[in-house]
Design a protein around this nucleic acid. Sequence first.
DNA 1: TGTACATCAGTGAACGCGCGTTCACTGATGTAC
DNA 2: TGTACATCAGTGAACGCGCGTTCACTGATGTAC
Lengths: 202, 202
Amino acid sequence: MSAKQETKSLILDIAESAVLAKGFEATSIEEIAAAAEISRSGFFYHFKDKNELARAMIERYIENEDKLYNDLFDRARQLHDDPLHAMLIGLKLLAELLDDMPNGHPGCVIASTTYQDRLFDAGVRELNRQAILGWRKRFRGMFEEIAEAHPLRVEVNMDALGDMVSSVVEGGLVLERALGEPRTVSSQIMHLRTYIRLLFLG
Amino acid sequence: MSAKQETKSLILDIAESAVLAKGFEATSIEEIAAAAEISRSGFFYHFKDKNELARAMIERYIENEDKLYNDLFDRARQLHDDPLHAMLIGLKLLAELLDDMPNGHPGCVIASTTYQDRLFDAGVRELNRQAILGWRKRFRGMFEEIAEAHPLRVEVNMDALGDMVSSVVEGGLVLERALGEPRTVSSQIMHLRTYIRLLFLG
DNA sequence: TGTACATCAGTGAACGCGCGTTCACTGATGTAC
DNA sequence: TGTACATCAGTGAACGCGCGTTCACTGATGTAC
């Protein structure tokens, strides 16, 4: 990575953690620049305005999460041939990964920006929407594959079942932050895991 | 309600919907005052500063939610004697209530302020924490009562099960806002309902 | 290898604007006698 | 019932500050010949 891209990436790191702590509007370019050890005008060499920072930050967050899910469920699939057990292993790995974060998970950029969406243009809102829809599609596909091997014991809404993974993570993160209890998200994921097991195995 | 309290309540209504749309920092006293048809200094007759507005807004939100849960699960209990079926009815009523909101649920004040918690003092953060702990206690108690009549078929973390109601609502609201699909939260609640049924009845 | 020029990754000062908050004041309503 | 005073629910002007953004400029590094 070039020096330029390292600075840009540093700016995005700083911005992300500040936005998760205070929200986008309350995060000033001054404080980001200071933390990155450049001047305020140096910031504008990397981003033409604050909205472009938001877009870059969200795009990067979505890419990182996608990669995390890819790696994690690929690995789970290598550990077990059956799609249901691979899913159960994947959820356990996800719970462990979230537990291993020293100060708890810092929060989700999508949740934060969604709760401030009138600050952003339609492009940013569409980015968030597509991210959630992408995860719905990913997990819905996995659940459909599971249902072929293990017929569902009750009728359920498959889109909503696909959404459930994102929903449990988002809900768990809100509670984890509000409570200050580090293992909150992972406990919620373990309940989701129990639900999946009961749904397909009884 | 006195004219004074009506104005105060109007200010809180306006502030709540603005905060849910843009976040607290981006919501100016000027815009709140304008919408309430008073002057900026008129606002300060009702609240000594912006932080006091936040506290009042959050306190009122928690009281309203508590009352909603009280009414809803009291009514469910009147409809069925068995605590499990009362819970299942309560969750169905909750899902219907959320579906009946014309433009989708506007979002949760606790989630919004929790994702901006560095803006507020420790008192406000403690308020949010106690709200979540209160709901944990409420639902954990209900699940324990259910477990006496219907022994659990798998071992689960009861605190996390109590948290699940809040978590599903919070997660569903994030998705509902991000997607712009009105029935998202209620679908998640229906999955929670199926889980509860499977957990206690199989 | 030396030199001229271009590009890169910024700096520093200045801008106009909107923000939260204060303060002296005010007209309408309520209360005491 | 009339009047004096107090309280209520605000107003309007002013304040200092920090914000996002612009712009002319700069020293270090890269490239062409």
